[in-house]
């Protein structure tokens, strides 16, 4: 079953094309990252899915059904900012959320505890710090223990300890088999938890699918020898080596599959090149992401 299925969604704000022809599927149990720089259309996309924005063209389904309020009630959603009644306490705000979601209000104490707001639950929302507001929004998402969560920049406004807690929470939820749609521009946030990813830039979907496929990050080798020029020529002749670059005192060699350092070493020795330095390195997610989003195609 697809939790969310998008077909050809487009949306314009005045002259700005916020989304153009976006389609992808979120399978059940996935932790689906929606990645993209600021202004790439992540929140607009989630706004359409939650019916606060209207798509110009295209359609989408939730739980393989036409999307309606009944489906939204099964999803815990934090979109953009925490939206609460300023004059009411955290607890009373959650009472309203529970009433609309048709969830048991006995669950409020549990979610407040998870989000560390129990002590301040009876203070008015307007007295909360930015981080506490965000925590209350996360508490509201967790109400009734939904099977699907949509989290738009969930660590916004949190201090480092809070960020770590939210990541831990997301990991635990993912471990419990929940489907999570996580929009973020923080790559390590996505790297640590996501199974799938969709990458947006200027409203266009650049790639989508499972993380390993979308962001191919073959390991590469860093090498050095007395004669780096000879080393470069020898590496270029090695089967599977796609590029070689001299980077300061080291040669960076990229392969079309993960290289086996011992084999490369042995090959170079046969060529009469003795290495002073050999290290297997992993391409950073940032680098892979920038390669994708900067690609003019």
């Amino acid at each position: 079953m697809s939790i969310l299925s998008l077909q050809n969604i487009s949306k314009k704000f005045g002259a700005v094309q916020a989304l153009s022809g976006v389609s992808f599927d979120v399978p059940q149990g996935a932790v689906y990252g929606i990645l993209g720089p600021n202004g790439s259309g992540k929140t607009t996309l989630l706004g359409i899915v939650t019916d606060v924005l209207k798509a110009d063209t295209g359609s989408f389904m939730l739980f393989d059904q036409a999307a309606a309020a009944r489906q939204r009630r099964q999803i815990g959603t934090l979109l953009e900012t925490p939206n609460f009644y300023h004059y009411l306490s955290g607890y009373r705000n959650l009472e309203i959320a529970a009433a609309i979601k048709q969830r048991d209000k006995n669950d409020i104490a549990r979610v407040l505890e998870i989000c560390g707001l129990t002590a301040r639950q009876h203070a008015a929302f307007k007295t909360y710090s930015l981080g506490m507001k965000q925590r209350l929004a996360i508490a509201s998402v967790l109400l009734g223990d939904p099977e699907v969560l949509i989290l738009d920049e969930p660590t916004n406004g949190l201090d480092p300890a809070g960020i770590a807690e939210v990541r831990e929470l997301v990991r635990n939820l993912a471990g419990a088999g929940k489907t999570i749609i996580l929009a973020s521009h923080l790559l390590d946030e996505v790297e640590k938890v996501c199974t799938h990813v969709a990458i947006l830039r200027n409203g266009k979907l650049l790639r989508s699918g499972s993380v390993d496929v979308v962001i191919s990050r073959h390991d590469y080798l860093e090498l050095a020898a007395v004669n780096n020029e000879a080393l470069k020529s020898a590496l270029l002749a090695y089967p599977g080596c796609t590029s070689v670059q001299l980077n300061g005192n080291v040669v960076v060699a990229v392969f079309n599959a993960s290289p086996e350092p011992a084999q490369v070493n042995s090959y170079l020795a046969q060529q009469g090149i003795w290495l002073q330095h050999l290290q297997l390195r992993k391409k950073s997610l940032e680098k892979a992401f920038l390669e994708i989003t900067n690609d003019p195609a």
Partner: peptide, 21 residues
């Protein structure tokens, strides 16, 4: 207008009201 100021007009829909509700 409170609902628009606090953006709860959005949240009510997100949480599971139809717009007509």
């Amino acid at each position: 207008t409170n609902e628009y100021t606090f953006r709860t007009s959005r949240q009510n829909i997100i949480d599971g009201w139809e717009r007509r509700q």
